[in-house]
């Protein structure tokens, strides 16, 4: 089944990105296709490669990058929400790309299921 994901919150402040990550991973392991993960609101902060969490904690953006590399997942950051928060190409973690909000609506249209994680 084709699944699309919307992540509304940034890393650490809320569990939303962690839940979305675990859900995405489980969906892939079950053989589903994750069409795209779209990052909106503060969720765009997941794409900030400058984040340096302490070494005994998870690195949320790096974890998305690795999952995307491993399974070819399209990680899209909303351009309007990103610019508002200073997330630009030069600080974008690998595997993320910046595009328009229309890419979220596309998920809703093209995916069999759309799942939202937020606060």
């Amino acid at each position: 089944m084709k699944i699309g994901i919307l992540v509304n919150e940034g890393p650490f402040n809320h569990q939303a990105s962690d839940s979305a990550y675990q859900f995405t991973k489980a969906a892939i392991e079950k053989g589903h296709q994750v069409l795209r993960v779209f990052f909106y609101y503060d969720g765009v902060n997941n794409a900030n490669k400058l984040a340096e969490p302490q070494s005994d904690d998870r690195n949320v953006s790096k974890r998305w990058t690795e999952l995307a590399k491993q399974h070819r997942i399209d990680l899209v950051v909303c351009i309007a929400a990103a610019l508002r928060r200073g997330i630009k190409e030069d600080i974008l973690a690998d595997g993320f790309r910046i595009s328009g909000l229309g890419q979220l609506i596309e998920i809703g249209i093209a995916a069999d299921r759309t799942v939202v994680f937020g606060d």
Partner: peptide
């Protein structure tokens, strides 16, 4: 349930609604 069970529930139901 675990995350795998959560995925099954999403698949089983046509629409998901997140009460944020």
């Amino acid at each position: 349930v675990g995350y795998d069970g959560f995925v099954d529930l999403v698949v089983e139901h046509e629409t998901s609604q997140a009460w944020l």
